[in-house]
Amino acid sequence: MSNTILLTGANGFLGSHIARELLARRYVVRALVRRGSSRSTLAGLPIDFIEGDICRQNDLLRAADGCAGVIHAAALAQVNPARNVAVWEVNKTGTEHVLQAVKQHGIRRLVYVGTANVFGFGTREQPGDEQQPYSGQRYGVDYMDSKVAATESVKLAVHRDNVPAIMVHPSFLVGPLDSKPTSGAMLLAVARRQLPGYTMGGKNFIHVRDAAIGTVNALTMGSIGESYILGNENLTYRQAFTLMAQVAGVQPPRLSLSPGLTRLYGQFNDWLATLTGKHAQVTLPMALIANDGHYFSSQKAINELNLPQTPIREALQEAYDWFTAHGYVY
């Protein structure tokens, strides 16, 4: 019986950790990667690379042939610009191609990697969970909207076509191997003293390795058709930036940025971008997101997927040490 797992998005931040977790459990890892994309975080690992594009159905069919399971972690997580047709092509159409490959080859388990933002967020006292309906449509961001649509495609395939899929939805990932960097850009901005202040919102944070463990656990644990939020600590931006500053040995941002001021700044940047044709660093949708507290509970994943809960300070320290060792900080 095959123990080969097809992993899409293997050379991404989370994917690099999922690949290591699969190898540690003696799975054979087959990675679908785009031609010419960097594989630096996978260097030296015994991975079977197949070049292809999830936007092409035949590439998925070829890659999934002979696999026992699929972990679909590939996504385009772009929020700037807020509207981008390529985001839909990768996140929704790509997911539908994966679903077709799973059906055609009779694969035993699909783990779809979504995002916690497809659920409604709550307060720190009463965080959102898998039962809360999507509330991010007001931001007008194709990344979130497309991930909601992709999640619905997976649910439909489970109920209509009996596709054996489980959905995991990580929150904000922190840890080493963030080579682009993606979420680690926030830590680097604090370390470089580039942030003047903090907004009134916050996020749920998780160590990227914990999210990888929860994702691989979903190959053999959890219930078909169910969603699981992979998260850990709910922190305001002030709390998060203070932790980041302590790890980096710098002073944390001191200025409290009001929601109104943040919103005006985003609106001005959008106007300027329209005038100049150049993308702004902070857009209105980004400002609106920064003003909200995206707080979630991961109790379901803790109970059913044995999701680990590494302290976020440890995750930040590992991330900072990796960035320092690879020349990112200065």
Rank of each mutant, 00 (worst) to 15 (best):
residue 196 P to S: 04
residue 282 V to W: 07
residue 259 P to E: 02
residue 256 S to G: 15
residue 16 S to F: 02
residue 103 K to A: 14
residue 220 T to S: 05
residue 118 V to I: 14
residue 124 R to Y: 03
residue 67 C to N: 01
residue 309 Q to A: 13
residue 132 Q to D: 07
residue 96 E to M: 14
residue 43 A to N: 06
residue 325 A to G: 04
residue 21 E to L: 01
residue 232 N to L: 08
residue 272 L to S: 00
residue 96 E to P: 14
residue 214 G to Y: 05
residue 140 G to I: 15
residue 63 A to T: 04
residue 277 G to Q: 04
residue 188 L to R: 08
residue 96 E to L: 09
residue 217 N to C: 04
residue 211 A to E: 12
residue 143 Y to G: 09
residue 301 A to T: 07
residue 46 P to D: 11
residue 11 N to H: 04
residue 310 T to C: 00
residue 181 P to I: 10
residue 156 L to I: 04
residue 81 P to K: 01
residue 172 F to S: 10
residue 243 L to N: 10
residue 317 Q to V: 14
residue 100 Q to C: 12
residue 93 T to G: 02
residue 189 A to D: 15
residue 328 Y to A: 09
residue 133 P to H: 08
residue 148 V to H: 00
residue 258 S to Y: 01
residue 187 L to E: 02
residue 267 Q to W: 05
residue 163 V to P: 15
residue 156 L to D: 11
residue 191 A to T: 10
residue 272 L to A: 01
residue 90 V to Q: 03
residue 231 G to R: 02
residue 318 E to N: 11
residue 90 V to S: 03
residue 253 P to G: 08
residue 229 I to C: 10
residue 159 H to S: 15
residue 202 G to F: 11
residue 51 E to Q: 06
residue 298 S to H: 00
residue 200 M to V: 11
residue 162 N to C: 12
residue 7 L to M: 11
residue 264 L to H: 02
